[in-house]
Design a protein around this nucleic acid. Structure first.
Lengths: 201, 201, 201, 201
DNA sequence: TTTTAATCGAGACGGTACGTCGAGTCTTGAC
DNA sequence: GTCAAGACTCGACGTACCGTCTCGATTAAAA
């Protein structure tokens, strides 16, 4: 449904079946792993969830919406890192979580597929724009590690610097095992802190 | 066509129509702009190219293949930068070309769509792996700018560092106008050269 | 409602809303004219009558039942002819009423549609068998005009002789304007009276 | 297809599968008997004929068209009577064939259903108007029996007089076993011949 | 006066057919 | 052997109506 149960209008009527909602979200998770994004269909989701096709369409209009709702909570959870007093450790933990999410987590696979679909489908792009999972999670970490506004670099560009290389690495099909989070975190910290002084980037 | 015109088998027979081939590649370019990646279909390509459906299938098996062939040459051309003696200028020029390609060029739109499709479709991933347009173009620039193997950072990770932030920025739907190539190039140069000494990367 | 308001079971309870009943019958009449029999749906009836779907189903189980109840009273009224002392005049008046009913009246359109539905749907056939509107109206006229049992022809066959040609004419889509009731009435009278003597038909 | 294979345009292309055409017509015949007109669906026809749904829609746009094509040939055959020199015998034979057709033949069941559907669906009415199976067959018999234009009664009204009573009898669900063709034929002959002299009907 | 019970509206539910579309394949005749 | 044309099977699309099922809110007669 994208935005959780709106039940204002009228008031009357049979209430939405929470069971059906859960079954659909569960089904789409399973299907993504089994048949891949391209193989997921609204029909397939409905059948797997033992739910009528109409019920799926009633609450989500595309498979992208179902996937988004199914994965966005998992995504936020998997990308959250417990803050410590050590910025380097935080950054390292975040980069490790990022690789794990993008390259190995089911929620990450869903997210990659959505990012992909968004490249050729404006509707999906708009959907993704409603919640910037990656950006939000990174911003929290970066803000703690380097402080906001202390460098000349806007916060969102600083996060792009952090996320970008890993993002490209995974999406372009390179081996995620070859990434070393610790080194990247050190270099990143060095770079953005230099930016504070040099005023470059 | 994926594998260039093979003319070995048998002997006689009508030769492949170069006219048809060009018409297909042309049509797919047009269609991409008009209806977007999701709207492109094999049927649509054939009709637009005034070519029979069978003819398209004879030479390409998926729309991804047609798009790939139609855009890969343009892509390489658009990402090539004339080498100068100034590494900073080269890097800056490359980053500008990269933004132009990813965010504004038709070939780039096709490439983004293909990268996207690859996230959920292994066949497309394999297709893209046959020619690493982005990596190749960046490698050439990076090699000239910092020298190969002089840092501890492997070359392909150094290129990921260069491409990644921009790649993420554009694919996540952020405004490409806010990227400043010059600053990024300076910071990049600073970082990878520090890596040579610090051995971090 | 098919079987008039039964109020036996239990005891208390909210009484049936006569308003709702009338609204439904009214709605089905309107809809039949606007969208035709095929276009009438239970859903459409409910919405048009500003009544819940369940309420329609509570009292009628198919659209045929609603239509039947909505049209049967009108039908009987439209087919009733005031008896005079002149059999020929009675028959003529009846045939005129029959054409008017079958070819031009809304109730007749409903009746034709029901007869039609009955050809392929035994449930509708059974429904129609509960009240032979056409036969009843004709029987009354024929009985007065020629007397019952005076010919060898059973009464219902004599009525079929009267109704049949017009019935076929209209249902097979022929122009009702070309029927001349007076001539048909004369011939009919001649034929059935001959039957009394000849003992043939 | 309603009008047999049109193969003029273009010339190229795979020819229509006669096998598929026959399978569809056969399937709809079977289905009509098994599940009744209301139970016949385009989906059901396609599945029963082991043919794709698209193929059915390619040549017929509604189930009425399929049924019409499937039954019209049988209908004409079943209603044809071998002319003799005895008008009374011809008429009797025709009336017997008519009862057999309307009340007992599969083609007749289809025809009744189509007539029925036509009452509430103008498209079906138009379809039926393209070929007046009942009228054509009766006209041939009546013309031979009484001569055309010898009475004041137009030929098609004379045929309505012949067909009508039986038509009404069967369509209103009355027992076809109670009809006696011979008596009806005699009365009919008597009536229309009287009409020649009396100039009534 | 409180139950009690059947009504009402609204609207979600599982089904199933609708008619369309794209994917690939196959079958012609012409080149 | 390629080409245009176009019929073929298959399966998903998104919509519509089916008939059933909860809901909360009425509305009267029975307790």
């Amino acid at each position: 449904m994208t935005e959780a149960a709106r039940k204002e209008p009228g008031a009357g009527g049979r209430p939405r079946s929470e069971e059906a909602r859960a079954a659909v979200l569960h089904a789409v998770d399973d299907l993504l792993l089994e048949v891949g994004y391209a193989g997921v269909t609204m029909k397939g989701i409905a059948e797997r969830a033992r739910v009528s096709r109409q019920t799926v369409y009633r609450w989500w209009s595309t498979k992208a919406e179902v996937l988004f709702e199914a994965s966005v909570n998992d995504a936020a959870a998997e990308l959250a890192v417990e803050p410590t007093d050590d910025p380097l450790a935080d950054l390292t933990a975040y980069l490790e979580a990022l690789v794990r999410f993008l390259a190995h987590s089911p929620a990450g696979a869903a997210y990659r597929a959505l990012i992909g679909e968004a490249q050729g489908d404006p509707a999906v792009a708009a959907l993704l724009a409603t919640k910037d999972v990656l950006g939000d999670s990174a911003r929290a970490v970066v803000r703690r590690a380097v402080g906001e506004g202390r460098g000349k670099l806007p916060l969102d560009q600083a996060t792009a610097l952090l996320i970008g290389p890993t993002f490209f690495w995974v999406l372009s099909g390179r081996d995620p095992g070859r990434l070393v989070a610790r080194e990247r975190a050190e270099a990143y910290l060095h770079e953005v802190r230099a930016g504070e002084i040099m005023g470059t980037a």
